[in-house]
Design a protein around this nucleic acid. Structure first.
Lengths: 158, 158
DNA sequence: CGCTGCCGCCGAATTATGTTCGGTGCACCT
DNA sequence: AGGTGCACCGAACATAATTCGGCGGCAGCG
């Protein structure tokens, strides 16, 4: 799983940038034959290095104009309670992602909703009513930038 | 930009699940002709509803075994300083994404590094030395789950 | 030092897919 | 009721994915 040479790195970089470019384009960009390229891409997926290909959708286009982060404290802090809460979150369409944390807060939830009114309603309906949620703090997100191309770290050439 | 019928929703859902399935598969799954499907996908991209297609890479495969969230306070809190800091963050390979926030903290940074030692080094080298960073709190991430399929909100059928 | 076996890359042939374009039906407007 | 426009469809053409046999380089062994 740790073996990843320059060619693999280049493939991973290109597919993070555009996952829908053709295998021929990809091969040409990297400088290998299409058949070789196909083989390596398949190996990366089989190895678990590439876990999937996903379209990125504009949140405004999905009628979600407000994003927020909600830092939640959970009690009692047991595995069962956390797992239940995770499952609960996963079923909420407003939730984009959830972080289970070490430290002050237990869970950080990234949500995207229609507007501030919907945010308020969401918090009241989905968090206040939960018994395991003893407190939460909400921060509205002004801007969220993602670094789409993630490269290997450490000794660059394995 | 807000017009998105059932077929568009289905396309968006499918492409979020697997962006590399063939246009024919996609069309068959949804129940329309490949040519129609191609047209709609192109329209969605042209309209800005689909912003891109990205491969998802396993962080451990990239030699990043530790993730953390760093809540940063910036002073002075001016646009110029924030923009500079954003640009700075964007250039750091360890940074996965950054949130600009309203409320207690100003910026929340999601990082992925090799191990806890590398996390410590990263914080010391990249944050402590910055003049505009007046304080930061770091939370190690035990688990991060993403909701990959994001559906339109509000009135479901536009 | 040379031989041999193995692994990965390549290129052509086959199969499948993307893409274009003209026609058709439905719905809406008048 | 007639006309107009839009979206969808299906066949034809261009392009790409996939397979597979063979070649070359490298390593390990004799």
């Amino acid at each position: 799983m740790a073996i990843m040479d320059d060619i693999d790195s280049a493939i991973v970089r290109e597919l993070q940038t555009d996952a829908r470019q053709t295998n021929r384009e990809l091969a040409a960009r990297i400088g290998i034959a299409p058949s070789t390229c196909l083989e390596r891409v398949r190996a990366l997926k089989a190895r678990g290095a590439i876990t999937g290909y996903h379209a990125e959708i504009s949140l405004p286009a999905l009628n979600r104009h407000v994003q927020a982060l909600v830092a939640v404290q959970i009690r009692p802090l047991s595995r069962a309670v956390i797992d239940d809460f995770k499952t609960y979150l996963y079923g909420l369409p407003e939730v984009l992602s959830a972080f289970i944390l070490a430290g002050g807060d237990d869970v950080l939830v990234h949500v995207a909703v229609q507007d501030v009114e919907a945010l308020h309603a969401f918090l009241m309906d989905r968090f206040t009513k939960r018994r395991e949620v003893v407190s939460f703090r909400t921060s509205v997100i002004f801007e969220h930038t993602r670094n789409r191309v993630v490269a290997p770290l450490g000794e660059p050439r394995a």
